[in-house]
Design a protein around this nucleic acid. Structure first.
Lengths: 180, 180
DNA sequence: GGCGCTCTTGAACGTCATGCAAGAGAAGGT
DNA sequence: ACCTTCTCTTGCATGACGTTCAAGAGCGCC
């Protein structure tokens, strides 16, 4: 039990660093953002960052968690739209994170922390998509395959940006034959 | 015009380096393979590698070109199998390059050379898949969307390994309703 | 035999992620 | 009021990396 505690800060400062890191990672790129630059953007020294985060990968995971939480929160507001529209909304919403998708895939092979996050993310994505397809009237027998295709297409649309029209065509092909 | 030339070597040595690099990139990973380690594996010094290749990204592109050429060559031998089997064969064949897919996506954003290769690759993949789907009897109107989904699923299956059975289920969903 | 080219090498540079040891500042116990 | 203890911050160092520079070595051609 802590015999001591700084006013409040702790959580607040951590979040501040995460926010600064997120901005840098999204705009500049993960590999391209040095810990020095990142720390400067957050208004602290590099060592301070290392006080709050084990290493750069841990910071990446924190950023991913925050971005994902934001997205999930916003999702509630479109939960009643038709399934096709929900998927298109997700693509649009997640596109800002485009650069991070490739980074996660690359680091997941090396960093256990990022690897674990990647698995958690796919479990969540699988659940959400399976629910959506089920509600939209997909046959139970090919639900698993359809879900997996859905996830792959989602990732593909994120990492290989397409014009609005193509995007819609692709998603509509995915939901073809469903009653909603 | 060259007033001079070493016996044969030139092309041979270049290829030797590419082969060594390919082995390292596939087994160890691109980020994890240092130029020093790579050069040692090829039996030369790092500077020698820099004589043949502009930088690490150029070497990556050379490796990708070689791997792709190999795969295309082998493909001819399965060109007469049913379309579904061809796609499954491609997934199986390309799986060795799994780690490189993420690397290409990550570096494409930064390195113009890798970016260009990535675009070339997708143009080729689009062509091959479109031809395949057309031959398999896909409707001309949703050929483009189907092709794009195909590419995304292919990349997805590469980067997120699935058990044989799941893989087949996914690919069969893609080719559902086609007469071959 | 010397010029010029291709190729190779040794040593260096700048940047990066990260580690270490020392300190600042505020509770809490006495 | 002092001193310990804990959280947090900092300056400096380290080792690895990608890449560059300047100097050669060996061969073909005049």
């Amino acid at each position: 039990m802590p015999a001591n505690r700084r006013p409040v800060d702790r959580e607040a400062k951590r979040e501040e660093i995460v926010r600064a890191a997120a901005a840098q990672f999204l705009e500049v790129g993960f590999d391209e953002t040095s810990m020095a630059r990142l720390s400067a953007a957050a208004g602290v020294t590099t060592n301070t960052v290392y006080w709050y985060f084990e290493d750069k990968d841990a910071l990446l995971v924190a950023v991913l968690d925050q971005l994902l939480a934001d997205a999930l929160l916003q999702r509630e507001q479109v939960a009643d739209r038709p399934w096709t529209e929900q998927v298109l909304w997700a693509v649009d919403r997640l596109e800002r994170m485009r650069r991070l998708v490739a980074v996660v895939h690359a680091r997941a092979a090396t960093s256990p922390a990022v690897g674990a996050w990647h698995e958690r993310f796919h479990a969540l994505a699988d659940d959400l998509l399976a629910d959506g397809f089920r509600d939209a009237g997909a046959a139970e027998e090919d639900l698993a395959a359809r879900t997996r295709v859905g996830v792959f297409v989602l990732e593909g649309l994120l990492t290989h940006p397409q014009p609005e029209q193509e995007r819609r065509a692709v998603v509509e092909l995915l939901t073809a034959g469903l009653h909603r």
